[in-house]
Amino acid sequence: MKTDDLIAALARESGSEYRRNWARDLSLTLLAGLAVAALLVLIGLHVRADIGVALTPVLLKAAFSAAAAAALLPLVARLMRPGRPLGWRVTAAALLLCLCGLAALVALAGEAPGQRMQAWTGGGFPWCLVMIPLLAAPCAALLVWLMRAFAPTRLTLTGASVGALSGAVGAMAYSMHCPVDSIAFVGTWYALAIAICAAIGALLGAKLLRW
């Protein structure tokens, strides 16, 4: 096909206003991802038995995860539409990681020496490292689907931030199940789980986000 014919054909398609509401699409996608993750916790993992008395720490953990999502969201939103500088949005994501590490260190320093290991690992393997990425997967799939409809051009970075954002959403859902409440635990392992999601996203980004 000649380029001029192509231009004519494309121009004929443009007879009406064309504007997708990317902010609404992004929020709906995140809500759907959160709903699926919450459903998976309710069905597959069950909500922790002492939810009645432990409501405050559960809400605090969910709020921490929501704050992480809020720190990552501007980066994802920015990468949806190309040709714009990233600016402070990368800093916000990096700052999140630093704050988590700092909070964990401060909290650990405040524990009695004999209690530190218990507070840090929650007395066993930190399962959130496995569970948060699994719970993040549906949200990540939805986000990838949405992103491809827009125009991400930096696929590895987009993959990493989509992965991290999904990880934060997964962490919100997982906090209903997670039995460990110490700040050191959350600051270390939730943050690491989100980082794992980011790493997986960076690895798969170039493949899955291609358009």
């Binding site: 096909m1 192509l6 064309y18 539409r81 190309p82 500088p85 125009a151």
Partner: peptide, 28 residues
């Protein structure tokens, strides 16, 4: 040229009017 024209056309609302058009265009 043709592939990019189709991409620019079908994703034309991915342009953010607050930023330079050429940055968007050449990014794609």
């Amino acid at each position: 040229v043709q592939e990019t024209l189709v991409a620019l056309h079908s994703r034309r609302d991915s342009y953010d009017p607050n930023y330079p058009l050429t940055a968007w265009l050449y990014a794609i």
